[in-house]
């Protein structure tokens, strides 16, 4: 149980920091505030996209809530499960976007024009890499939620 709480906390904080970074980059590239964007952190590309920042923040909040409510309770388990679902969804969406980008470049080539696509830029991003965490955690959080749902009446901490 403790391990569960700690991992939720860890995931939550990681997502939160990247959410902040992404937000910073967005501000730097959108508003003429004289900020300089941190486009790369080691080999990770940090895009400056407001929507991405909100998504990362959402996952962060969900995992942090899970730790806060304790994953043993209904609210805690629900937060963890929904956090996993959203984390995986964000990962999947980016994969789709990358696939679409590749397809687009391929089509443009077919049409006779030159095109290129940087896979590394599309894949080495926080939404993809961080998303592996929730992905791994999904079966566990699903089972945890199921066990709460199937428990006999009266033995569940009510919300």
């Amino acid at each position: 149980m403790k391990a569960c709480k700690l991992s939720s906390l860890a995931i939550g904080l990681t997502y939160a920091s990247f959410a902040a970074l992404t937000l910073f980059n967005w501000l730097a590239t959108t508003l003429p505030l004289g900020l300089k964007a941190i486009a790369k952190l080691a080999w990770l590309t940090i895009p400056g996209d407001l929507g991405l920042s909100v998504s990362l923040l959402t996952v962060a909040l969900l995992f942090l809530s899970s730790a806060y409510f304790d994953p043993g309770t209904v609210k805690g388990a629900a937060s963890m499960l929904v956090g996993c679902i959203v984390g995986v969804a964000v990962l999947a969406m980016q994969l789709l976007v990358v696939a679409a980008g590749v397809a687009d470049a391929a089509l443009t080539c077919l049409a006779g024009e030159a095109a290129e696509y940087a896979l590394s830029e599309g894949l080495l991003r926080p939404d993809v890499l961080l998303g592996l965490g929730p992905l791994a955690l999904t079966p566990y959080s699903w089972r945890r939620a199921k066990s709460l749902v199937e428990a006999p009446q009266g033995s569940i901490a009510t919300y």
């Binding site: 609210k75 388990a77 629900a78 937060s79 499960l81 929904v82 939620a145 199921k146 709460l148 749902v149």
Partner: peptide, 10 residues
Amino acid sequence: LTFTDLVDTV
């Protein structure tokens, strides 16, 4: 508690 209830708390 149904599954829906659980998810809806969040």
